[in-house]
Amino acid sequence: MVDITKLIEVIVKPMCSYPEKFKLKQHESDKFMEFDLSLDPEDVGRIIGRQGRVVQAIRNIVYAAKTDYGKRVRLNIN
């Protein structure tokens, strides 16, 4: 099984201009294992990309990974 936290970190952190401000919090809801990503405001636009294409590609990779949780994964950017 894949560690989703590490997967998100490996994908997103190299894209950031301020990797020291990268924070990832994990919490659980009824149907989802949610990951809240906090970044420097300057990096948010880079991660979202034009028309949300970059973040959609990241989410596709993260959502496709097999997890131990038995729940769906959700990635939120704060």
Rank of each mutant, 00 (worst) to 15 (best):
A57H: 08
V73S: 13
D40E: 13
K23E: 13
L7T: 02
L7E: 15
R72K: 14
R59P: 13
D30M: 01
Q51F: 15
S38Q: 10
D43C: 07
Y63Q: 12
E28R: 05
V54G: 03
V12N: 01
D3I: 00
D40T: 06
N76K: 10
H27G: 07
K13F: 01
L75F: 13
Y63T: 03
L37Q: 12
K66H: 15
K66L: 14
V55I: 15
K21P: 04
V54E: 07
M1T: 06
G70K: 09
C16V: 01
D36Y: 05
K31C: 10
V62Y: 08
R53I: 15
K25M: 12
R72S: 15
P14W: 02
T67V: 08
V2N: 06
R46W: 05
F32T: 06
K31F: 15
K13N: 00
I8D: 04
R50L: 03
I61G: 10
P41W: 02
C16Y: 02
S38Y: 12
I47V: 11
E20D: 10
Y63R: 11
I58T: 08
Q26D: 04
Q26W: 00
S17P: 07
E28W: 05
A65Y: 09
K25A: 15
V44L: 09
D36Q: 09
I47N: 03
L75N: 07
F32I: 03
V73F: 09
F35L: 07
K13W: 01
K25I: 15
G52A: 11
P41T: 00
M1L: 00
R74G: 06
S17R: 11
E34Y: 07
R46F: 09
K25T: 14
L37H: 11
E20C: 05
P19K: 00
V10K: 05
R50H: 08
D36F: 03
R50I: 01
F35T: 04
I11E: 12
M1W: 01
Q56M: 15
I58D: 14
I47C: 08
Q26K: 07
P19H: 01
V54A: 13
R72G: 14
V62C: 09
Q26G: 00
Y69I: 06
I47G: 05
P41F: 02
P19W: 01
V73C: 10
V2F: 00
F22C: 04
E42Q: 13
V12S: 02
I4Y: 04
K66P: 13
G49D: 11
L37F: 11
I48P: 04
P41S: 03
K66V: 13
K31V: 12
L37M: 10
F22T: 05
E34R: 10
L75Q: 07
